[in-house]
């Protein structure tokens, strides 16, 4: 039921949030498999491992806890990294892509 239909969670000054889009995938320098893990574990894994990739590279978090879909982009905003996009996985869950900014 809780579909995002218009203007979900953004301020007027911000770009629209990257939504699930097929074909938005780009090659990831690191894949973090957090499938089956509940939040906040996927976020903790991401925070632990993002510094393993070079500046500007993409980390991909695989997660199926619905909280991760909202929380990974929110973590990026709080930590000044970039949420590149979220792609639904065929087996359920998402690949959520994050670009290391610093």
């Amino acid at each position: 039921m809780w579909r995002r239909r218009s203007g979900a969670g953004r301020n007027e000054t911000e770009e629209p949030r990257a939504e699930s889009q097929a074909g938005a995938r780009e090659p990831a320098a690191l894949t973090i498999d957090a499938l089956g893990r509940k939040c906040p574990i996927p976020i903790i894994m991401l925070a632990d491992q993002i510094n393993q990739v070079p500046m500007g590279a993409v980390v991909e978090v695989l997660a199926d806890d619905p909280a991760a879909y909202t929380d990974v982009p929110a973590w990026c905003r709080l930590k000044s990294h970039a949420h590149v996009g979220s792609v639904e996985l065929p087996q359920g869950g998402w690949s959520i892509q994050v670009r290391r900014n610093y």
Binding site: W2, K38, D71
Partner: peptide, 23 residues
């Protein structure tokens, strides 16, 4: 947070706002 709800989904309010749902 979802772990405190019977639905195992985070609050639809926090989701719609696009803010952290855990903790």
């Amino acid at each position: 947070s979802s772990c405190t709800a019977s639905t195992l989904r985070p609050s639809h309010v926090l989701e719609a706002m696009g803010v952290l749902t855990h903790g």
